Simulated assay, not measured.
Amino acid sequence: MERVAMRRLSSLGITYAGYFEIDHGLITMFIERWKQETHTFHLLVGEAIVALQDEEVLWGVRVDGLPVTLIDRNRNIIRKKQLIEELLSFRPETQNFKDGMLKLIPIFDFLYEPLPDDTLEELVQQHVRCYILILFAG
């Protein structure tokens, strides 16, 4: 059921990415070929750049529309807790915040138990938001 909601959010590609083994030689090669003046990689076949469209094709994440993140310094902890409860279906404790931002540990704890098959769609969407938050934050 959660996968259906993830497809609606067009970010399923990220969830299947998993962990990558880092190729330090490849990263070093790209660093050496990066040109700060033009913000491009100078390769043997010509210049190359990573564009938002590349991200959309590779990960299935929509890159047009409104942004999905915002640091709201005007909202106090009580209002942040209310918003988190509304969007993610759990209310974190005050000690789960650091510098006004929510730590990821309570989200992991919240997601520890899998949802039953007959879960309401709203709760599924709230869980999906938790997973997305972890993916983008982590």
Rank of each mutant, 00 (worst) to 15 (best):
Q53Y: 07
V128P: 04
G46A: 02
T38E: 12
G138R: 11
N76L: 06
E32A: 08
E2T: 02
G60E: 01
L111E: 02
A5T: 02
R91S: 15
H42I: 03
I78G: 01
T28W: 00
D23A: 06
L104Y: 01
R62V: 02
L70V: 05
I14P: 00
G138L: 12
L44P: 09
I27K: 15
L120Y: 13
F136N: 06
F30R: 10
T69Y: 05
I107F: 15
Q53D: 09
V45K: 13
I71P: 02
V45E: 13
L52P: 06
I71M: 10
W34M: 04
E113C: 10
G138A: 10
L135E: 15
Q125H: 05
L120Q: 12
T119P: 04
F136P: 01
T94V: 08
I31W: 05
Y112W: 03
D72V: 01
E47C: 12
G25L: 09
D64N: 12
I132Q: 09
K98W: 15
I105P: 00
S11L: 12
A5Y: 03
K98P: 00
A5P: 00
Y112G: 03
I105H: 10
S11A: 08
E113H: 09
L120D: 14
G100C: 06
Q36A: 13
L120V: 05
D109W: 12
V4N: 01
G25D: 10
R33K: 14
I27A: 13
L133M: 15
H127F: 04
M1W: 00
V57E: 08
T40D: 09
D99V: 00
M1H: 03
V50N: 01
